[in-house]
Amino acid sequence: MSPSLLIEYGLDAVSAVLMITGAVFVLAGAIGMMRLPDFYTRMHAAGVTDTLGAELIVIGLMFQSGWSLVTVKLALLGLFVFLTSPTATHATANAAYKAGLKPLLTRFRPGGDDQNGSPL
């Protein structure tokens, strides 16, 4: 096996690990959005996917695309998501708070038999 092929396989392996990890985080965030009890707590679950999940998938794709203009565009996209997602989350939270939506501030602990958690 030639060294260049070995490097290619190595990059592919790194890319696959990063992307699968990112996808798992995205899925966990979505499930969190379903299960958590109120708006403010769901916001945290949505944040999980925006920060780590999205960045991991984008970085994984950058390993896969080789060195081209596509890599540069992916890096720009990652930077953009990294900079705007906290602003969007803060804007949503701030609008809800200003509108008088009260956060749940007591311990939330549904019984053991209630596996679905959040009331729809």
Partner: peptide, 16 residues
């Protein structure tokens, strides 16, 4: 606000 949050998260997923 739940819906706005969901739309925003859905958009991020669309981008990905």
């Amino acid at each position: 606000y739940d819906r706005v949050l969901a739309v925003n998260a859905f958009g991020t997923k669309t981008v990905l």
